[in-house]
Design a protein around this nucleic acid. Structure first.
Lengths: 119, 119
DNA sequence: ATAATGCTTCAACACTTCTGGAAATAACGA
DNA sequence: TCGTTATTTCCAGAAGTGTTGAAGCATTAT
């Protein structure tokens, strides 16, 4: 992750509507949601939503796939991970400065839930 | 962390100069660096730097303390942690979607290094 | 006192971003 | 084919952001 890429991603998230959209898609899982569904759930006009989805996609935070007339958007977990790694790089020299972050996805949790759940 | 707080923090980080400053202070540890030192290391004019330090501080990402003529700025690890927790909340239902993030600060690492290192 | 140092504030300008209406494109159904 | 649905693009105006030079405060040194 380059500084420029990180700035793009952060700028994309630094807007109320886009942050709502992103968080909705983060909880929605890898399958994602159709654009219209996102708009309906959050009460956003189609053209405005399209603008914000484009911004998030260009920043690499969302991936889009077409299915018939619908376009599904899903969170790009890998780039979110890269962004967080970039922000916390060399933080505190390994001391426990980020308790919530480290608790969030422990090795134990990872072992308990397999990726196949989404297959 | 409220959505508004998160947007403020993300907006503060979504700027090349500020991101550089923040990352420098993240690696600098809890003691922080004097404003002038930050400016010297990154090559930023005093007035410009002051503007950006203020933005980062108001967003809660930095804490400032005066020491004589110098003002030391340090990363606020707690708010960075809150921000990451906010972004990744309910992500992927516990599946291993953020490998780097979870590897970043494991329980093992936390035990190995005590907070007293900075006392 | 006076000067020097460290940092901040102010005002002005160029530049970018967000929003909303209207029109365009694309896929499907009758 | 024609209409409907899903989504995007274009445009213009309003609002916000970053940079610069000059001036202003505090704190320390002479």
């Amino acid at each position: 992750m380059t500084p420029a890429t990180a700035v793009d991603a952060l700028a994309a998230l630094a807007q109320e509507t886009r942050l709502k959209v992103f968080r909705l898609l983060v909880t929605a899982g890898p399958v994602g949601l159709a654009a219209g569904e996102v708009g309906a759930q959050l009460g956003i006009a189609a053209n405005t939503l399209s603008f914000h989805l484009k911004t998030l996609s260009q920043a690499g935070l969302l991936v889009a796939r077409q299915e018939g007339r619908f376009i599904y958007y899903a969170a790009n977990y890998a780039s979110m991970d890269d962004l967080i790694a970039f922000l916390t790089q060399n933080c505190c020299n390994g001391v426990a400065c980020l308790p919530k972050t480290s608790a969030m996805a422990t090795t134990a949790k990872r072992r308990k839930n397999s990726l196949k759940e989404y297959a």
